[in-house]
Design a protein around this nucleic acid. Sequence first.
DNA 1: CTGAAAGCGCTAACAA
DNA 2: TTGTTAGCGCTTTCAG
Lengths: 324, 324
Amino acid sequence: MTRPARRITSTDVARAAGVSRTTVSVVLNDAPGQSIPEETRRRVMEAAERLGYRPHAWARALRAGRSDVALLAVPDLPIGSSISRFIEELATALAAFNLTLVTHLEGAHGRSLPDVCASVGASAVIGFYPFDADTVQALRRAGATVVLPLPYEDSSMQQVGRMQAGHLISRGHRRIGYALTADAALRPMADDRLRGVAGACAQAGLEPPVALTVGLQVPEAAQAVRRWTEQSVTGVCAFNDDTAIAVLAGIHEQGLRSPTDLAVIGADDIPTAQVAIPPLTTVVFDLHEIARDHAESVVAGLSGTQPRSTPASFNPRVIQRAST
Amino acid sequence: MTRPARRITSTDVARAAGVSRTTVSVVLNDAPGQSIPEETRRRVMEAAERLGYRPHAWARALRAGRSDVALLAVPDLPIGSSISRFIEELATALAAFNLTLVTHLEGAHGRSLPDVCASVGASAVIGFYPFDADTVQALRRAGATVVLPLPYEDSSMQQVGRMQAGHLISRGHRRIGYALTADAALRPMADDRLRGVAGACAQAGLEPPVALTVGLQVPEAAQAVRRWTEQSVTGVCAFNDDTAIAVLAGIHEQGLRSPTDLAVIGADDIPTAQVAIPPLTTVVFDLHEIARDHAESVVAGLSGTQPRSTPASFNPRVIQRAST
DNA sequence: CTGAAAGCGCTAACAA
DNA sequence: TTGTTAGCGCTTTCAG
């Protein structure tokens, strides 16, 4: 298990190829302006290949002053499939620039973000929420040259809410409800989405949405449903699909039906949304573009270039199913 | 944005405290056997604190020959809340040993695991599935001294299946169905759980479970339900809660009821399980203990000690709700 | 009790 | 065209 297996260093390759370490370095890094005879080059490549040589990341980073590691700080909230897809997209986009993405789950008891940043020697740190000034400073001290909060909490989230409300309104609903999550960690995002809903209502000349908190418990959801129907709400925007599914359960519990008695629209399109009873209408958005956009910002930041300010096309849209 | 902000090195601290780099190192690392006068010690600490000094991880690792980074390779499967909770537990457990956990999502287009391992200079690599020999070798070459697949696919997973089947059998079901996931990435785990179910059936003298693949689509689930009822199956164990909820949808679609016509038991207790229609009986297990156990194996591996072979108490149990 | 020096593996100047 | 040297920041002998 613990076979030490001495690392293969550039010295080994040099010896095997009968050249100096420098030459190895030059060949393997394709150093510009250097002309190495094809024969030598081939010998070096072959030796490196045969020995399974890998440049030692720490040494390289130490020398270069920066690493190719980017760190994504994921908050301690339920990671939906949309987030994991986003991470993958981001990793792919960064890989195209020779950057390696690793993620850190920010838990209450784990290591602090700056610690992790220092440990892996990340050059860039990407977060889902704005970092406070102290954290930013700590991250810089820990070696990060780029600190980039995803603008996840701003208008993009509001757009989701606007889209949900717009959908209900376009289907004739005139009194809108909003189902807030009971999860405190998600609350800021929920508030943001709610603002979007409120905006759309105002714009359509409707009264503000009736916002209620809905936990993931049937009785609680049922009570919310009762209150909505009492106030003649006919359509509910839920913070996310989890909450939406709870609302559907509440409707069922009350012996009512969706969408006849109360229409429901969720957000995120989690896998079980399509097998909810009834299948859940929901809002999705493209993480692909936004990921690529952030990768570019990171690269721009690292190379000192100004990031181009073209905003990513977020492209939120409604997936129509039976619940509305 | 890109303020270079020269790093604070131990030289800076030494100068500020009026001592040598060695002394700084000795003080900050609590080097054993060295006795530093309290006064000097205090001066060093104070200077380090004031300057916000952080030892440079790369240099330290380069010198020491190993880093404090552990890398968790998460397969490209939907990260459910149970997995993310597990990651958090593992990170916490490792942090107790001064190890830093970061995770890498293995995507098709991203960087290869050995690449990531090399980039972050991980000393330990933990995976959800057994690595093939080539990968293991590549990881060793990349600097990992410990390569530890989580025994996630072995008996623990089978236990989950056994538990599910046991629950149904104890409630009088004599013909058991199994709902396999349609997600290829999850299939090995599903097969393992199925083996557990089959074992329990055999032990009870029942026929083998009727295994069908159930995707997250209502018509597909409905068809599976039809086939089960045709074969007089009365209780179904689902690979996980997502699949179980699809089965519930299929039952509903057929105009049947759970548990009267067909009982369903899931696994993992995802948030929406309790608001499924009807609320879903499911099997949960403690990730806490298993995470701690793995952290210990990693530490043991790194320090050359033999890992103690006490198996983690996995503690799977049934959460009884309305669907069985 | 403290400091000087060596060296981890790498690469960028500079010399040959 | 290739090799020699220096140094990134750290820790760890070994002298003083």
